[in-house]
Nucleic acid binder design. Sequence first.
DNA 1: CTGAAAGCGCTTACAG
DNA 2: CTGAAAGCGCTTACAG
Lengths: 343, 343
Amino acid sequence: MVSIKDVAKMAGVSPTTVSAVVNNHDCVKLSTREKILKVINELGYIPNISARELVTNKKQNIGLITTGYDNFQKNGCNNDKDIFYIEYINGIAEAIKTTGYGLLIENFVYEEGSKEIPKIIEQKRVDGAMIVGSLYKKEFIELLKKEINVLVTVGTFSEFTDYVINDYTESILMAVRYFVKNGHRKIAYVSGDSKTYACPLKLLGYKEGLKEAGIKFDNELLFESKFMSSHGYDVAKKICELPKEKFPTAVIFGADILAAGACRYFYENKIYIPEDISILGYENLSISSYINPPLTSIDWNKNLMSKEACSLILRRLKNPNKKYDGIVLPCNIVERKSVKNLN
Amino acid sequence: MVSIKDVAKMAGVSPTTVSAVVNNHDCVKLSTREKILKVINELGYIPNISARELVTNKKQNIGLITTGYDNFQKNGCNNDKDIFYIEYINGIAEAIKTTGYGLLIENFVYEEGSKEIPKIIEQKRVDGAMIVGSLYKKEFIELLKKEINVLVTVGTFSEFTDYVINDYTESILMAVRYFVKNGHRKIAYVSGDSKTYACPLKLLGYKEGLKEAGIKFDNELLFESKFMSSHGYDVAKKICELPKEKFPTAVIFGADILAAGACRYFYENKIYIPEDISILGYENLSISSYINPPLTSIDWNKNLMSKEACSLILRRLKNPNKKYDGIVLPCNIVERKSVKNLN
DNA sequence: CTGAAAGCGCTTACAG
DNA sequence: CTGAAAGCGCTTACAG
């Protein structure tokens, strides 16, 4: 292992100067700098990260924590969870690459009331962390804030940290408008887990959309559901049990996972999409493009979210005492083949 | 930040003794140990990982490196890649949790001929690493071996490292048997990328299976394809262009992604699964359960693979000079609804 | 069973 | 612009 001392000796300078070069301080004379760089190159010197961490009191890692209900595991629905997080994980891995930080990931299962926190935070392995998902309570964030200063929530609003979310209300409003534009009037809405931050906001968008189009809100066309595909299946069944005059021409699912589950039911019961019923997913997960027919879905633009989350965390790392920032991103609809134009 | 000195002072012992307790050395008198543990608890002392790393010359992280062709990105097929890796990532994250190691991930795009290696290895951020996937050449592993000693390949055989793979030949043989058992005789096979290690082995299984059942190998029923769903679509088209007497009753796809792409084509062209044609996926990715009809697929048992990969790496970490280990896991078929019984 | 001392490889005031 | 010195928080022979 070649150390800073070896470089210093070989270049005929002090470790201090080598350090200055390695850290791009601009106080080193050009010729000295070049000499040192040459030796670094020859020797293949790579600074020891641990030593640097120790003295600067910074780890050079940031953490990515995914959250899940205990339920997911108990019910063997890890699929549903995996499918949700992957695009964030990869998006963030991509965005972090150029920053000099490493990405440490931990899947954390939040249990209400528990004081347990993610290990990478407890052990101070990271300088900052992002919490992806929405399956936790505010108390969890407060707990974390005691242990780590730099925190960004991704996908959930947060009072005490930076956050990046979507415009939930607007997104569902947009969905209703989209259906109305395509001639639909009987539009059902399958809301996600009411415990999450987004749920009531999305519902608001649904109601606003109906109002705007002069459609009367009908409680029978509103369904609540957790975020598992089996629940989407169940909801589809309920929809089909509706009296004929109530049967919607269009359904907005609050999550792609739910739409996928519903598709299963429709498929099994020979109800064709979009001929018999039009459906819209939410999130635009990768699965939406594999489903048949490919699912038209409200895109969260998770890649952009990941990037924004990274810049948020980098900014916060540089400036820990700044007032909290929130980024609200717009959604858009990715058109595939699950919606019929009734006009 | 409370340090080992603080604990020592408060407990009236030396840092050496505190260190011994923290590291579970069994040379400390019980009463001393208890006294120290009490202080640790009171003070909420957590050892500084960087300091420990510096002195032991170990990072306490292991790396998870996913590999992908440049193509995936160029062709906007990240979906296909994401979908493939997620279950490993989560499986390994789960398995690593109890080991005391952190999990550092990096998505690496391998380019043939390039000398570039993953940053987490170059910067020595990890004690060991797992390479998941098969989209790289042997030279890549040789390159890595120069920089890091503890390496495990997951999903690809490797001469110079530990590895965990599936029994590729057996798995496709099993697939053919499964179709034969269900009364199929015209069985097509869509092979994956021929550059990968598994490809020729799987093909072998296909041929053996046919032979065993007394079915003549027909080159027209063999298709080659890269690992993108669009290629599955193209293959399905080709299958449908086959003269009627050649049209297979069953197709084995060398990857779920390919089956998904094919399903799209079949769906669009009103060819029903499994009524008109039976299909079998490979890998049992999460998408296979969301597709309609749900895809019967050869399960790689990625959870077990992840666990085995973790034990392999832990063993190797403890014993760096042991002879290389290889684990070959059996596959099994997860029956869903894409195969018709012809008997 | 316990402690004093050295040292891991850096960075950072500080002095010149 | 450069260097000597101290110190980050641990672990590890070694001595007793």
